[in-house]
Each structure stands twice: as structure tokens, then as C-alpha cells.
Design a protein around this nucleic acid. Structure first.
Lengths: 142, 142
DNA sequence: TTACAATCTTAGTCTTGTCTAAGTTTTTGG
DNA sequence: CCAAAAACTTAGACAAGACTAAGATTGTAA
């Protein structure tokens, strides 16, 4: 079998963090990835090896990690999806903690089609403050 | 430690199926659970043991499975969430296959708060066919 | 009632992703 | 420039959840 290159949920979380860190600081250290994802450095080491094997990062022991073009594209897609989802949920007046947790969970299961629908819906809500107000009022309590 | 009773994602999928089958036929056989979830009967056996240990089902070898009140409540919550999510996605004119897959993935990550928001949003869309039409048009193609 | 089919369980293995503990490499401060 | 700290890796274990193959139980039809 030709190796699935699964890009599992966990892989996506790591990729997302790596991209963020590189964007933010110019490099992605294991210790920061570990801290941001709440896992041990040992887990990061193991995952970087897997991501390397999948051609998503270039990884040299003790020397750091960079994204391949393929990894970078994928990371950007993942991050865009994350942002759209966050933007959508913010329209309902949920607390940030909840939004973060739900987005973290949901983001890996959104198809391109649904992403498009959510994007359009978020745009629609941007231009319809009246509807937003109604929703927010109803969501919190009564 | 007092045993987490995690109610993992997989557990929820099984619970959902068990509830469905009981509602539909009066009983839930391993062979049907396996077929509906696309897993082996061996996996079903293993999971029923776990669900039994978590107090969600009463399970006797070779004799079938029933839901405890706790399991039934949980299953109903899971199913309600599944239905709300499906109802919401249908408003965008996505194809049923996509809706099903996305709901399957997302449903386990929706908090009570977000569920409420999605419910209200679906209601809102029910009463706003113009908005639905606009969204559907934009989602498919242009 | 007996034999076959269907269903179910067990045993054993695999994969993914996690952890801790221990050891290595790199960085840094004096 | 070198010792201590920080960062990193390896080794080994574990848990959940899946699989196949083989064996046990139950249901059914003749």
C-alpha cells in the first residue's frame, strides 16, 4: 500500500502550531510547540519525525524544523479554517474560552463545502447586525 | 483516581447507534451496530464491555445490550445534537453525503453553548427563506 | 433433535499518540 | 572556554480502538 499520508488530527494541530510559531518568531522550537499544545517534548520529537516522513516538514535532530511547501500550504488551509470558525462563533456572543475549545475540536472535521458555507454565513452576519443582536440576546439566557 | 468515565468520541458513536437501533427495532444486535458503524463485530464486543464498565449499558454476553437511564440520557443528548447540526447544514444546500460526514466529525465537539447558538440560528434560517436562498446560491458555485 | 448458519466472544496483534525517565546536544553566562 | 542550564532525543511503557483468526454460543430448519 502506498502509505496514506493520513494527516491525522494530531498532525494538523502540530502543523498549525509550527506555522504560528514560525510566523511569530521566525522559528519553531520543540519546547514552544510542546507548551502550546500541552504535550511533552518527547511527544513533539516523535511527531516531528512523523511529519518529516510525510513530507510536511524538514526536520534535523537538534537543529530545528521548517515547513515544506506542502506542509506550509496545508498549515495555511488549517489556519484559515480555524479563523473562519472562530469568526463565525464570535457572532453568537459565546465566551472566548468556549469558542476556543469548540473550534479546536470541530476544525478538523469541516469539509471544503461546509467551510465555504460558514464563510458566507459569517460574512452575512457581518452585514446584518440586527440578526446578530437577536441571536446574542437569545443565546445568553433569554 | 476515580476513573474518568471519559465517554470518548468512539463511545458516543456506539451509544448513538445503540439508541437508534433500539428505537427502530426494539433491540440492538452486535452485528447491526458493527455494520452501521463500519467496524468489526470484535470491536463491538470490546466496546460494549467498556460501555458496561462505564455504567452506560447493561450488557450480558451473548444475550444483548440495553441502555441504562444514564446511557439513554446521554444518547438522547448526542442524537439531539446530531440532528440540530444536520438541520443547520441543510440550510446551505450542501449535498447529503458531505453533511453526513461533517456532522459525524463535528458533533462530538459542540458545547452546550454552541449547540444553543446553532439551534437558534437554524430556527432563524427557517424563518428567513430569503437569506437561505442567498446562501445556497452563493455556496454552490457563484 | 440434530446439524448448519448466524451471531458473538476471545486471543493476539497493530497503530497512533501519549507519558516518564534517562541520556545527549546545544546554548549561555561567567 | 567551560560548566551549568536549557533544549532535545531515545527507550520503554501504556491506553484506546481497530483488525483477523479461531472458537463458543444461539437460533433455526429439516
Amino acid at each position: 500500500m502506498p502509505k496514506p499520508s493520513s494527516t491525522s488530527i494530531a498532525s494538523q494541530d502540530y502543523l498549525e502550531q509550527i506555522f504560528h510559531l514560525i510566523a511569530l518568531k521566525g522559528y519553531a522550537r520543540s519546547v514552544d510547540i510542546a507548551a502550546n499544545l500541552g504535550v511533552s517534548q518527547a511527544s513533539v520529537s516523535a511527531m516531528l519525525k512523523r511529519l518529516g516522513a510525510d513530507g510536511l516538514v524538514v526536520y534535523e535532530k537538534y537543529r530545528g524544523v521548517i515547513l515544506t511547501p506542502k506542509g506550509s500550504d496545508l498549515a495555511q488551509h488549517i489556519i484559515r479554517r480555524h479563523e473562519v470558525l472562530t469568526r463565525l462563533l464570535r457572532h453568537f456572543g459565546l465566551d472566548e474560552e468556549t469558542i476556543y475549545r469548540d473550534v479546536e475540536g470541530m476544525e478538523h472535521h469541516i469539509s471544503a463545502q461546509t467551510l465555504k458555507a460558514f464563510t458566507l454565513l459569517a460574512n452575512e452576519l457581518d452585514q446584518n447586525p440586527a440578526l446578530c443582536r437577536t441571536l446574542k440576546r437569545k443565546v445568553r439566557g433569554k
